[in-house]
């Protein structure tokens, strides 16, 4: 994925999430949604290091990962609207969306739930001697789940082709990382499994991509998993209704100043890969795309009520 394409995908995620936030505010969308505004570089940086036929597992905060892996914003939006054209035909919703065809093995409503699933997918690939890898996204909160330890232990033991990408956005809902995570950090835990651990600036897409590329290369040649901790920040609340009483507006402003999208834009302008006008045009294109996604979702048919009873068993 080129840097320019990465830039476009980051805007796609940003504008998608902002529209979702607005639609929730207007009462158009129901249920709940966990938005990743501010974390776009971890999703896109990681996927930029993958091949199209590699796999990704995601979290409850999964729209960004899905779009970064190449998900169609129309079908994502349709899922949030609960429509038949959504990726899960309206049965899954925000936290339960997948597209196996593009290697997106699903967002996941259970904190840490995707970690062993990713590990098992990596085992399946290894058994077939395939040179494909699985990138497993999770938050720093999930690093305290038992399956984190169990999975990393087995992945390291068997040298599975997995990349564990921890998005440390400093808060597990309201709990600050310092109040929940013992030791020097998530990446440092890699040493316990004898695998490389990398701590990177999660708002610097180049840093994320470099770490993920190295990890993917290792995984592909049978050297096993890598644990990458991306320090980042979600600029919006945990979910709808979060008044963010556990952090200060000053802290938020500091992180807004480190917004990964303008950072990439500046880098692209400096390198001459885009002009300011082209950069603006990319954003406008994405804006139209997202507007189209909302229209598509609005106009799409709902699944007939009877279909709620189908699809439980294969």
């Amino acid at each position: 994925m080129t840097a320019v394409e990465s830039y476009k995908r980051m805007w796609r995620i940003r504008l998608f999430e902002e529209v979702v936030d607005r639609l929730f505010g207007e009462g158009v969308l129901r249920g709940t949604s966990h938005l990743c505004v501010g974390q776009e570089a971890t999703a896109v940086g990681t996927c930029a290091a993958l091949r199209p036929d590699d796999y990704v597992t995601s979290t409850h905060r999964g729209h960004g990962h899905f779009l970064a892996k190449g998900g169609d914003p129309r079908r994502l939006m349709a899922e949030l609207f609960g429509k038949a054209t959504g990726y899960s035909r309206g049965r899954g919703g925000s936290q339960h969306m997948a597209c196996f065809e593009i290697g997106f093995l699903g967002s996941n409503g259970i904190t840490g739930g995707g970690i062993p699933v990713a590990t098992g997918a990596a085992l399946a690939l290894q058994r077939r001697r395939e040179e494909r890898v699985v990138a497993c996204f999770f938050g720093e909160g999930a690093a305290n789940q038992g399956v984190f330890h169990e999975s990393l232990n087995m992945a390291a033991l068997w040298k599975l082709p997995a990349i564990y990408v921890c998005e440390n956005n400093l808060y597990a809902m309201s709990t600050p990382v310092g109040g929940a995570l013992a030791g020097p950090g998530v990446a440092a835990r890699a040493a316990g499994y004898g695998v490389p651990g990398a701590l990177v600036d999660g708002n610097d897409i180049f840093a994320v991509r470099a770490a993920a590329s190295e990890a993917a290369a290792r995984a592909r040649c049978g050297e096993g998993p890598t644990l990458i901790e991306c320090r980042t920040y979600r600029l919006l609340g945990h979910s709808r209704g979060d008044r963010r009483v556990y952090r200060t507006r000053e802290e938020e402003a500091e992180w807004r100043a480190r917004d990964p999208i303008p950072r990439l834009r500046d880098a692209l302008l400096r390198s001459g890969e885009v002009t300011a006008l082209e950069a603006e045009r990319i954003r406008e294109e994405v804006e139209l795309e997202i507007r189209d996604a909302v229209a598509f979702a609005r106009e799409s048919p709902a699944l007939p009520v009877e279909a709620a009873l189908e699809g439980v068993y294969a």
Binding site: G113, I115, P116, G120, A124, N153, M154
Partner: peptide, 11 residues
């Protein structure tokens, strides 16, 4: 836990 989760992922 991870064992069963891995079976799901492989499946």
């Amino acid at each position: 836990a991870a064992l069963v989760g891995m079976a799901v992922g492989a499946a």
